[in-house]
Write a protein that binds this DNA or RNA. Structure first.
Length: 289
DNA sequence: AGCCTTTGACCAGCG
DNA sequence: TCGCTGGTCAAAGGC
């Protein structure tokens, strides 16, 4: 089953998505599943980044959203550098130029009705810039308890537990050959708050930003309009790094994904002939709910 | 000392 | 029942 365009903002795909191996698409917008799910972000070169809702939605997405709003007034690449570094390994920091988009994508009713939580997907990062080999960057503490070569042996799969007492949340992380995360399967729901502000500080001192909006951990009660108010401005992505986003709900029946032919067209427009990126349109897309 | 990753063994489900 | 596969356990070692 290929992703279905269900309407909404220009350049976005969303809808049921059952075939992860379907043709690459651009656009990155996803509604996190209520209990568990997978967010897979990929690039036309065959590189993929995968984030779970809680990798992105609460800590980093809101940071980026916040920074997006700031960037609307004064474009400052350092903001995104901070945000993206929080997404990457704790040692990585990558400069990214930013240009705000003029419009705010419209939400498809199908998705807006699914879940009130919000996910912002960083898209268009250089393929080398995000390596979520440290799941702890989502604000929770994880302990790796196993690794297994899955059938075919293409990608080793790592198994992580949340270290919080009485929390049974687990993550299955699939890595590509070069160590990049290909897929994260998230099982369960945290019964506690994000465990460590200190840890976020370690990733760039953004913990305060996280609390700007995520003071409550009960995101399910947060309204969509709240998010839209909170983050008005999306960020356009690096055209060279057309994103691919897949959300796979493991424990539920619903599966969603984002993609867009129109977005691909847009990305093609901002991409130069030699594959270089038009700085004016470079960088990150922050799509919101 | 505590927490983490690594890794081989073990277990359960399924055909 | 057996073998395969995915998921988990737990000892060992590192930071």
């Amino acid at each position: 089953v290929r992703p279905a365009l269900m309407g909404g903002g220009e350049g976005l795909w969303w809808g049921p998505y059952l075939d992860v191996d379907a043709a690459p698409f651009s656009g990155a917008w996803v509604t996190p599943p209520p209990l568990s799910g997978t967010v897979l972000l990929g690039y036309p070169q065959g590189n993929f980044e995968t984030f779970h809702e809680q990798d992105l939605a609460l800590p980093t997405a809101q940071v980026v959203h916040s920074k997006c709003s700031m960037l609307d007034q004064a474009v400052n690449p350092s903001f995104i550098r901070v945000a993206t570094s929080a997404l990457t390994s704790q040692h990585a920091s990558y400069p990214v130029n930013v240009t705000p988009l003029p419009e705010v994508p419209t939400l498809p009713p199908q998705l807006s009705s699914v879940n009130a939580e919000s996910t912002c997907v960083l898209q268009g990062l250089p393929s080398s810039s995000i390596t979520l080999d440290r799941p702890a960057v989502d604000g929770y503490n994880w302990r790796k308890y196993g690794q297994k070569a899955v059938k075919g042996g293409e990608y080793p799969k790592s198994y992580y537990k949340c270290t919080h007492r009485d929390c049974l949340v687990r993550k299955n992380v699939e890595h590509s050959a070069d160590g990049r995360i290909v897929q994260i399967i998230y099982r369960g729901q945290h019964t506690h708050e994000r465990s460590s502000k200190r840890r976020f500080k370690d990733y760039g001192g953004i913990s305060e930003d996280l609390d700007d909006f995520s003071g409550s951990t009960d995101t399910s009660v947060r309204s969509q309009s709240d998010y839209q108010d909170y983050c008005r401005k999306p960020i356009i992505s690096n055209g060279d790094m057309v994103g691919r986003l897949v959300e796979k709900i493991q424990d539920g029946d619903e599966q969603f994904a984002g993609s867009s032919d129109t977005q691909e067209e847009h990305d093609a427009e901002v991409r130069t002939d030699d594959g270089a990126v038009d700085d004016a349109s470079a960088n990150e897309r922050c799509l919101l709910q």
